Simulated scan of single mutants.
Amino acid sequence: MEIIRYAELKAHPWRNGGGVTRELARHPRTSQDNAWDWRVSIAEVSRAGPFSVFAGMDRVLTVIDGELLLLSVDGAEHPLEKYRPFRFSGDADSAGALPTGDIRDLNVITRNGAFKGYTSIVELSKTRAHPVFEGQFGILLQGQATVSPGTPGGPTPSAGTPAEPPAPAAPEPERVELNRYDAVVGSDTGTPEIVGRGFLAVVSIDPAGEPGTD
């Protein structure tokens, strides 16, 4: 089970001085500059100004802290409220204004024709675990939560086959506490399961042509 600790990520200042970005993940990991096919990051925006152009890319931006980002995309204004994902082209001429103060946003950027990114915001439960599958990241936005590796189930005996004696009950998997903005990397083997109280961003990166869920 892999957890990306937000507190350990390096902040990269924007060239225009309007904010900083912390990168959670990219693919390929060894790519330089904008040669990657997808990237997931969190930005702190402290000053109005233009956003970087990502040619040939698709963007999903979600305000995760603060009240409002007034995003201008090719001259059209879009008021983005907290926890409302918004998709736009990385080729667009875009800029942000901060009518209610500083904000923090979650960015999912994917290369057109190669991948498609999706962001959904879910409310956590203490009684029903939320799984994080392969190709997904679960990012704690608010509240308290823990994560544990899921327990894969065994095969079901076919009809007429004597049932095996029940195996001894496995110990409960150890639960690991998450801090705000920590990201859980999904897996289909021992799928991580998150429980708690608060809100979780689920980022899905799908190969182009496969269905996703907004």
Rank of each mutant, 00 (worst) to 15 (best):
V122C: 09
N179H: 14
Y181R: 09
S187G: 01
G160D: 14
G190V: 02
A159E: 15
P131G: 07
T161N: 10
V184Q: 02
P131Y: 02
G135R: 04
K126T: 01
P157W: 08
F133Y: 08
P149Q: 11
L141A: 10
P166M: 15
P173R: 11
K126G: 00
P162W: 13
L140E: 05
Q136H: 04
Q142F: 12
I139N: 10
P166L: 15
P165W: 05
Y181H: 13
A167W: 07
N179K: 15
G138W: 01
E174M: 06
P149C: 12
P166C: 15
A145K: 07
P192K: 03
E164L: 14
Q144G: 00
E134V: 10
Q144Y: 00
T191R: 03
G150R: 03
L124S: 01
E134C: 07
A170Y: 09
Y181K: 09
V147S: 06
E174S: 10
S125I: 00
K126D: 00
L141V: 07
R128M: 03
P192F: 03
A169W: 03
K126Y: 00
Y181G: 08
I139K: 04
V195T: 15
Q144T: 00
P192I: 08
L141C: 11
E164C: 06
G196S: 01
L178C: 05
I139S: 07
A163L: 12
R197Q: 12
V185C: 04
P149H: 06
T156Y: 10
A145L: 08
A169E: 14
T156W: 10
A163C: 12
T189M: 13
F133W: 04
F133T: 07
P192W: 04
T151P: 04
T189Q: 14
S187C: 02
A145F: 04
A145R: 03
T151K: 06
L141T: 11
E193N: 05
A159Q: 13
E164K: 12
G154T: 09
G143N: 04
A183H: 03
V184A: 05
V147C: 06
R180V: 12
G135T: 08
L178T: 07
T191M: 11
I121A: 14
G154W: 11
E177P: 01
V195H: 01
H130F: 08
P166A: 15
Q144W: 01
S187K: 03
P173T: 15
E193A: 14
P157Q: 09
E172D: 13
E193D: 03
S158K: 08
T151S: 10
E172R: 11
V147D: 11
A167V: 11
P166H: 15
V185T: 02
F133R: 08
A145M: 11
T189V: 14
R180W: 06
P162G: 14
G154I: 04
P149V: 09
P192A: 05
G196D: 00
P173D: 15
S187L: 00
D182E: 10
P131H: 02
T189N: 15
